[in-house]
Simulated scan of single mutants.
Amino acid sequence: MEIEVRSQNDDEMIFIVRDAEVPFINAIRRVAMVNVPKIAIEDVNIIVNDSAMFNEVLAHRLGLTPLVSDLDALEGLSLPEDDDWEEFSNGIMFYLKEVGPKVVYSKDLKSSDSRIKPVYDTIPLVKLKEGEKLDIEAVAKVGYGKEHAKWIPTTVCAYKQYPEITFNEDVEIDYDCAQACPRGILKSDKRSKKIKIVEEHENSPLIGVEECAMCKSCVRASDNGYINVGFRPNDFIFRIETDGAMPPKEVLLKACDVLGEKADKFIRFSEEGGN
């Protein structure tokens, strides 16, 4: 198996995987979404809430606020499978004490651990009118996406099989199929009597045929079957985007580690005769 990174930043990673199989790639996708640990607010103690927002809605907004959850932040914290995970005091404490009039933002959450804080400062939580008060204590804990959406580290985790475009040289060139491409990856070159695949795409790290959506608009536009759109069965384009809580590379590496542990556990289970 070969991996080639097309682009990578703090929130997004796009890479090409070659010589792999669909079950393996899909297992990586599923594990990255539901088995990679992430930090989110779990318990909320609302002492005072004079705002118009119901307590349950406010607690839900706090839970969905992305918190820094990189490897350094996760170190030393209890996991859901640990016996002491459910203890209220066993987590990262957050405090929110405000008086209106003002809009309360995520930056107003005060953390007991300087490493673990909201990823973005400008997420609006609630609006307070004149004299309205808000006094909240909350505990953030490590969890998994299989339990709740707030613990899913990825906003996008998807793959597609590597596109492949071929031309039927036995029939007359059909220039209309190039005009039908919604992504503009086909270009008619009547001087050289060819249809070319555009290599560079604006605002996209993908090159050449990789930008093809395999919608087959070009195939439907060709009356004589000049163009064919398919895919390479063992090559994939994989995209991971996060909400900023974790770098996408860390999500991928952790997902591979978890998948490896699951495979080892299954092998031991089989070797021991199902005991």
Rank of each mutant, 00 (worst) to 15 (best):
S7F: 12
L71V: 07
F94M: 02
L134A: 02
K146P: 07
N203S: 13
V57S: 09
E250L: 10
I267W: 03
N26H: 13
L252T: 00
V31P: 06
R268P: 02
F269D: 05
A263R: 04
C218A: 07
R220E: 12
N45E: 15
L67S: 11
R232I: 15
C218N: 04
L128V: 12
F24H: 13
N45H: 12
A27S: 15
S192Q: 13
K194L: 10
Y95L: 08
D70L: 10
E81R: 08
A213R: 13
D70M: 05
A149C: 10
I123V: 15
A20F: 15
E241I: 04
K146E: 12
V119R: 03
V31S: 10
I39R: 02
D176F: 11
L259S: 04
L186Q: 14
K196A: 04
I207W: 00
D10C: 08
D113Y: 01
K254I: 12
H201M: 07
E56P: 11
K133N: 10
S204L: 09
L74M: 11
T122I: 11
L125P: 04
I173R: 03
V103L: 06
I14N: 05
C177T: 05
K38T: 15
C177M: 10
D235K: 02
A221F: 06
Q179V: 05
I92E: 03
K127W: 07
E75C: 13
A138C: 08
T65W: 08
L67I: 14
P247N: 13
V36M: 06
K146H: 10
Q161M: 15
V142F: 03
D235R: 02
V209Q: 10
E132H: 04
W85K: 12
P37D: 11
K249M: 13
D50W: 11
A32K: 00
K249R: 13
Q161R: 14
V17D: 03
L252E: 01
I185W: 05
A73H: 02
D70P: 08
D113R: 06
R29W: 07
C256W: 00
M33G: 09
D84K: 08
C181A: 14
E42A: 02
N90E: 06
I267R: 09
S114V: 08
E2R: 13
Y159L: 09
Y226A: 04
P205D: 07
H60Q: 13
E75L: 14
A255W: 09
R183D: 00
H201T: 05
S69L: 06
A158Y: 07
G145N: 06
I16F: 06
N45D: 14
C218P: 09
D108L: 03
R30Q: 13
Y120E: 03
T122A: 14
K150F: 01
F238N: 11
W151R: 06
G145M: 01
K194T: 14
P248M: 00
D50N: 14
Y120G: 00
D170G: 08
A221Q: 12
I25N: 07
S7A: 14
L79G: 09
D108T: 04
G91H: 10
E169G: 14
S69W: 07
L96G: 01
P205G: 04
S111V: 05
V229A: 09
V44Q: 07
G260V: 00
D257V: 03
D108S: 13
A52N: 09
E86C: 03
R191S: 15
E81N: 08
E261C: 00
